[in-house]
């Protein structure tokens, strides 16, 4: 295969010498990205695997392999060359994508609002709707003097870290049941230089043991959470990227999708200061349900303030206040 490739390179070697990116490998062994795509029939393979938005996928992988910023990679790959090592990576990554490994795991990092986070296998990848959610939360607290923040189930740390990144007056504590996610969140905080205002505890929330022993008397001004909210009946519709590569604990919300949210309500009753806020990102039909639950079960303790829509006009976010 490689011999075939190098042979086919003959006539273009003059061009290669002019555009010799990266390493010191002899010019003749480089291969244009367009050619690598064509020879490997990657477009067809990705399509057959059911991968959508293939151009974007390929561009992400190209920018990762060439170690260039995504926005600096041109839409046309005509002028881009891969050396043998890069070509091997390129094909390995595309193969993984055909097996529906999430792009964010292949790249090993992904952006969330203004920060870039490391990703790790089995740790839930933050979704674009969560950016809109955090924009609302950050906007609601931008004028506060000091905010003690608690995040329940922080995963990669995206929500807390983006808030710490935009507001210097916030100090965050997070709990997370997955060990891998706990480690990743701490790593991300360190990488972003936010470790002095962020701590994460490996803890599984249970009735009457909502927070780890060390935090059992702590009170907070704000609790945020994107708890698992996918209903059991919806599990049949999950994408392969999600079923195979993500930890389903981060998604499983029980029969009505609010199993974990209910625990968070009780946690908020004990650990929010009066006037403190609880913000939750939930599924499509949840905000009206939450409103009903608040009125029926939490009167005098928690008050439903409002529901908000995500960028696709679906009402999915709720704001609750501690009375």
């Amino acid at each position: 295969m490689l011999r075939q490739l190098t042979r086919s390179m003959g006539p273009t070697s003059r061009l290669l010498k002019q555009v010799n990116y990266g390493t010191n490998a002899p010019a003749g062994t480089h291969i244009p990205v367009t050619k690598a795509l064509e020879i490997g029939q990657w477009e067809e393979k990705l399509k057959a695997a059911g991968v959508e938005d293939r151009k974007f996928n390929v561009k992400c992988i190209v920018s990762h392999v060439l170690k260039q910023k995504f926005s600096s990679v041109p839409d046309s790959f005509d002028q881009l060359q891969l050396n043998p090592g890069q070509l091997a990576d390129f094909e390995r990554f595309l193969e993984a994508r055909c097996a529906r490994m999430p792009l964010q795991h292949i790249i090993g990092e992904w952006d969330f609002m203004d920060i870039t986070l490391k990703t790790s296998p089995s740790v839930f990848i933050p979704r674009p709707e969560t950016e809109e959610f955090m924009r609302l939360v950050i906007d609601d607290h931008k004028n506060a003097k000091h905010v003690d923040l608690l995040e329940v189930g922080c995963g990669s740390g995206a929500m807390s870290l983006s808030m710490l990144h935009s507001l210097p007056q916030v100090v965050a504590t997070a709990i997370e049941r997955s060990k891998a996610a706990t480690v990743l969140a701490a790593e991300n905080a360190k990488m972003l230089g936010l470790l002095n205002r962020f701590e994460v505890h490996n803890h599984t929330m249970e009735e009457d043991k909502y927070l780890p022993e060390a935090l059992k008397d702590k009170k907070y001004d704000l609790i945020i959470s994107n708890p698992p909210y996918v209903k059991t009946e919806e599990f049949q519709f999950l994408h392969p990227e999600v079923v195979v590569y993500e930890n389903l604990n981060a998604l499983d919300g029980g029969s009505d999708g609010l199993r974990v949210a209910r625990l968070v309500f009780d946690l908020a009753c004990r650990h929010l200061r009066p006037g403190g806020k609880l913000w939750l990102e939930l599924g499509n039909d949840h905000p009206p349900m939450v409103k009903t639950i608040m009125n029926l079960k939490y009167e005098g303790r928690l008050k439903f303030i409002a529901g908000y829509s995500d960028q696709y006009q679906r009402e999915r976010f709720v704001q609750i206040e501690k009375v």
């Binding site: 938005d53 992400c60 979704r127 994408h239 696709y312 679906r314």
Partner: peptide, 19 residues
């Protein structure tokens, strides 16, 4: 409008469209 393959999904879907 968002690119085909983008749009609502939430936790159930892992979308990466950018357009």
């Amino acid at each position: 409008t968002f690119m085909r393959g983008s749009g609502p999904g939430g936790q159930a879907v892992n979308k990466t469209s950018n357009c």
